[in-house]
Simulated scan of single mutants.
Amino acid sequence: MELGYSDSVRENVEILDVVSASEEVGILDDVINQGESEVVHLKVGMKFDTVDEIYELYRKYAQQKGFPIKKRSSKKDNGVLRYICFACCREGKHKTDSETPLQPEPTSKFGCKAKLSARLDLDEKWRISVLVLDHNHETSPSKSRFWRCNKKISNHVKKKLLLNDKAGIRMHKHYYTLVVEAGGYENVTFEEKDCRNLVEKERHLKLGEGDAMAIQSYFSKMQKHNTGFFFNIDLDKEGRLKNIFWADGRCREAYKEFGEVITFDTTYLTNKYDMPFAPFVGVNHHGQSTLFGC
């Protein structure tokens, strides 16, 4: 008997199969906010083995109470970390350059004094020395998952995102499957935008399929028509583009005549590959810019 799935439901079912085919165990542990339901209590004198343990406990406490945290300051003695302070992200004062008092710039800083300070004792244990829990602003536990300190994508989920991206699965479909498996958006520790940023970062400086061959083919064709054309392409073992240099015959002749001064600018970035492009430019006898190479 064949089930009468609609096209949209069938598509979602197929995507769920792709996501969970290679490794079904453990995906929920990586997506759902594990352990956040346990009530966290803080007090002066609590001891920890590492700074990371302090940060993680304070982060969970802040998530339950509804405020973001950040590392405020730290001190070292002979290269050894001895003091650390975490504070509410609303601490400090907002500095504005606006000259119009009727149109002030938006700010998230309200001079909040909430903080947690810890010191390394002689027994090599970290102890909470200062703890301020009161805030001078409203807190919102329902918005905690949107703050940067609470966003995290595990290595397992990262692997799934990249594999599904290579398979051509749309990001909104893949993200929806993670939400379904986690039991709702409120149980996912990241947003769809974070997934897209991760994939885009992974694509950084990576050539698309056939692009490297297309560039080499084009430059070889140019070399046949212009014997003075020179190019060099540098790729790594994974086929990622490291460097390209090219200069035609006219550029090389111009360099022989006007190569005393060379300028180049690497601030330009292409939209597709986000790669710095540096044209080598000089000045000819007419005071005009002339290209030496790229």
Score class of each variant (00 low, 15 high):
253 E>K: 15
164 N>Q: 14
251 C>F: 04
169 I>E: 06
220 S>P: 00
244 I>F: 02
163 L>T: 03
216 Q>E: 13
168 G>K: 04
184 G>K: 02
211 D>H: 02
242 K>S: 05
223 Q>D: 06
254 A>M: 08
184 G>T: 05
202 E>H: 05
188 V>I: 12
165 D>S: 06
164 N>H: 03
216 Q>F: 07
248 D>T: 12
260 E>Y: 00
198 L>I: 01
205 L>D: 12
188 V>P: 05
247 A>P: 06
189 T>N: 13
213 M>C: 12
177 T>W: 03
258 F>C: 11
163 L>Y: 00
162 L>K: 10
234 D>Q: 13
225 H>P: 00
192 E>N: 09
244 I>E: 14
177 T>C: 14
188 V>Y: 00
253 E>C: 11
239 G>T: 10
264 F>M: 08
188 V>C: 05
254 A>T: 05
199 V>R: 07
199 V>Y: 02
207 L>S: 15
226 N>V: 06
198 L>K: 05
265 D>P: 05
194 D>M: 07
194 D>H: 09
166 K>R: 12
229 F>Y: 07
217 S>V: 12
184 G>W: 03
163 L>A: 01
262 I>V: 12
217 S>P: 03
244 I>Y: 01
176 Y>R: 09
223 Q>W: 01
264 F>T: 10
215 I>L: 15
183 G>T: 02
182 A>Y: 02
207 L>M: 15
180 V>M: 13
241 L>P: 04
199 V>G: 02
202 E>S: 09
235 L>M: 15
161 L>R: 00
205 L>T: 08
234 D>W: 10
222 M>P: 00
229 F>I: 09
186 E>T: 15
199 V>Q: 03
234 D>V: 13
233 I>A: 04
